[in-house]
Amino acid sequence: MFAFMESIEKPLLGDRKSYMPITVAKLIDEVESYIAKPEFFSDVQVALKLQRIYYLQYNELAAKLESDLAMVLSRLEAAKNNLELVKKFIANPDEEHQTLMQIAQGIFRWVTVQPVKKVTLQVGTVLQMEFELQEAEEYIKKDITSLVQQRLQHEHDIDYLQDQVNTIEMNLAVLYKHGVEKQKRALEGGLAGLSPRP
C-alpha cells in the first residue's frame, strides 16, 4: 500500500548545501592567519566568542529542525492511517466498518461506521473539504509524497547541521589550545626576563 513512498526522492538542492539557510562553518587550519583578520584584532578570545555564537545558533536551529521533523512525522503517520482507511472504504463500498473512536483524551469507544461514499479531509490548518473516495485517495497520496519530501529535507539539513557543529567544535578546540599555548609562552617569556637574585 505504501510502496510508492520508496520511490520518493528529496528535491534537488541545486548549488546549495542545505534546504534551510545554514551558515557554512569553515575549518580553521592556520590559527595565526585566522586571528590576524581585522575583525579579531589578533585576539584569540574574540575569535572564540564568534565560534561560540555560531555554536549556539546551530544548536537553536537544530532544535527547530528536530521539532519540525517530529511534526512532519506525526502528520505523515496520520496521512498513512487515513489512506489505509480510505482504501478499506473503497475495497468494501457497501459494508459497515468497526473502528475505535476517541471520545475524550485517552478514552476510546468502538463505533460502527455506515457504508461510506465520501469523506471529509483537513486540507489546511482550518480548512476541510469533502472528497469522493477515489479523489480522497489521490489527495492523500499527494499529501504523503509532500510529507516524505519534507522529511527527507529535514533529515538532510539535520545531518548537514551536525557536520557544521562538528566543524565549530574542532575550531573551538583549536582556538582554545592556541590561546593556552600563547598564554604559556607569555608566562615563560616573562619568567625568563626575570633574573635570579644573588
Rank of each mutant, 00 (worst) to 15 (best):
residue 181 E to Y: 06
residue 100 L to I: 05
residue 25 A to Q: 13
residue 192 A to K: 15
residue 26 K to F: 01
residue 59 N to E: 14
residue 54 Y to T: 10
residue 163 D to C: 02
residue 191 L to W: 05
residue 153 Q to I: 01
residue 56 L to S: 13
residue 99 T to P: 04
residue 145 T to I: 03
residue 64 K to P: 02
residue 73 L to T: 07
residue 44 V to C: 14
residue 105 Q to G: 01
residue 106 G to Q: 04
residue 5 M to S: 13
residue 85 L to C: 10
residue 97 H to R: 09
residue 36 A to G: 14
residue 135 E to C: 00
residue 22 I to F: 02
residue 116 V to M: 04
residue 3 A to C: 09
residue 79 A to F: 02
residue 186 A to D: 13
residue 138 E to T: 03
residue 101 M to H: 05
residue 126 V to W: 06
residue 159 D to L: 10
residue 74 S to W: 03
residue 131 F to Y: 09
residue 122 Q to N: 02
residue 125 T to G: 10
residue 47 A to T: 09
residue 88 K to T: 08
residue 178 H to Y: 14
residue 151 R to P: 01
residue 41 F to E: 15
residue 70 A to D: 08
residue 95 E to P: 03
residue 102 Q to P: 01
residue 160 Y to I: 07
residue 23 T to Y: 06
residue 180 V to E: 15
residue 89 F to G: 00
residue 74 S to E: 12
residue 131 F to T: 05
residue 34 Y to R: 07
residue 165 V to C: 06
residue 106 G to Y: 01
residue 155 E to D: 05
residue 7 S to A: 13
residue 187 L to G: 10
residue 174 V to E: 07
residue 16 R to H: 08
residue 170 M to L: 15
residue 121 L to R: 06
residue 150 Q to L: 05
residue 123 V to F: 01
residue 106 G to C: 02
residue 78 A to Q: 09
residue 61 L to E: 15
residue 192 A to L: 14
residue 65 L to P: 05
residue 170 M to Y: 09
residue 16 R to L: 08
residue 4 F to P: 02
residue 124 G to W: 00
residue 176 Y to L: 07
residue 141 K to G: 00
residue 169 E to A: 10
residue 141 K to Q: 12
residue 26 K to T: 05
residue 123 V to G: 00
residue 154 H to K: 11
residue 135 E to M: 03
residue 185 R to S: 11
residue 102 Q to G: 00
residue 159 D to Q: 14
residue 72 V to G: 06
residue 183 Q to W: 04
